[in-house]
Nucleic acid binder design. Sequence first.
DNA 1: GCTAACACAATTGTATACAATCGGCATGCA
DNA 2: TGCATGCCGATTGTATACAATTGTGTTAGC
Lengths: 221, 221
Amino acid sequence: MGIVPQVRHPGLVDQLVEHVFDAVISGKLKHGSELTEEKIATDFGVSRTPVREAVRRLAEMGVLVVRPRCGLEVASFDADDLEQIAVLRAALECLSLRLAMARITDDEILALSHAADLCDAKLKNKDRVEVFRADSRFHLLLSEFSGNKHLADTLRRLDVKVQLCRMVFCASMKKIKSSVQCHRPLLEAIRNRDARRAERLLREHILQSVQVFEPSVSSRT
Amino acid sequence: MGIVPQVRHPGLVDQLVEHVFDAVISGKLKHGSELTEEKIATDFGVSRTPVREAVRRLAEMGVLVVRPRCGLEVASFDADDLEQIAVLRAALECLSLRLAMARITDDEILALSHAADLCDAKLKNKDRVEVFRADSRFHLLLSEFSGNKHLADTLRRLDVKVQLCRMVFCASMKKIKSSVQCHRPLLEAIRNRDARRAERLLREHILQSVQVFEPSVSSRT
DNA sequence: GCTAACACAATTGTATACAATCGGCATGCA
DNA sequence: TGCATGCCGATTGTATACAATTGTGTTAGC
């Protein structure tokens, strides 16, 4: 369940995109790391052609920064980015929720509930990366239920940056837990079809996520 | 030795992206048209390599749709897309405006005013494409003044789709005029630092744009 | 000792060649 | 005649080779 949509025969490009992105959000490639197309190509055992395409896609996503004739760099984020992204996310997800509340089915609420369960399960394993992945899945699922595919697409793109931020600003397990636990009351409000309460909870959940990360910052200039 | 050129090579890829996008939003390439990488390459007199990269970028932008082994297609939009994009745009631009109202300078308001002037000027020439371009510029300028670069980036992406929609749903000059004229009262509200009024005007302006196009389409099921 | 120019190397940009995949069409069989 | 099947052409996917640009180190000159 990756970033790349379903493909019949996953080409090398898609595999490369997945691979590099995974390496970044799992911490194997730290922000600020330097790369070259050549290096990725030899590491993966393919030619530069598909690598090049993958690199461009990753740059478009905001995962890599291309510096002409100076190699590539894994993107980094500062506190401003973190806050700006949260504000944007809050607006988009709240819109998504408002739209969803008018049309969400019981089955869809059940699916959300399962996504929340998964978050809890991953939390028990104390695996940050997996918790983040599950959390993203929960939020993206909600965006699907808005019925607005352009909104869902926009949130998918934004989620990539959110995941990157999470790697840059590594939060304590305790804070992650308290953040993930916000899903429960939110789900309860959705089940009760209480749109106003649900929206308020979601907005607070997202804006608070900035506070979750802030303390452990060790940003580079 | 002579003077070192210092030419910032624009890159064939960028030129190709510009070229194809321009062809689409100027109507030279209609939505639904079929293409191949090869065709673009020979038309432009370059190899398939840069074309391929350009095509992928255009696909990412939503301008082209790649159909594996069946060529490319210029993206099309239906009435649902139009409405969904408008809803999304309204939310994002209103957020942008709220943020901007708290920090916009007199110089920036002047710049907005000039952008609005340009819209009027292009309107006098009755050149649809140029009016649309100027209108986009006005709205994107406002997004820049929000101070949130991720928001501005998101709106830039969305604007591509907006421009494409405008080509699919070609509106009457009269309707375009009435839409563009909404900029004046909006600017006046911004000048008066009346955030609430400005936001209301902007929201109405954007949501009405759906109505601007609707009549000229008969594909509504 | 410092500066400036030059050459080299690293990296990306582009072209060309070839392989793989899939849709369509014709053909053969029932 | 209808359907299945296999071949062919069109298109994309990948590899390799080469050109162009630029950062950097070294050296020559002052």
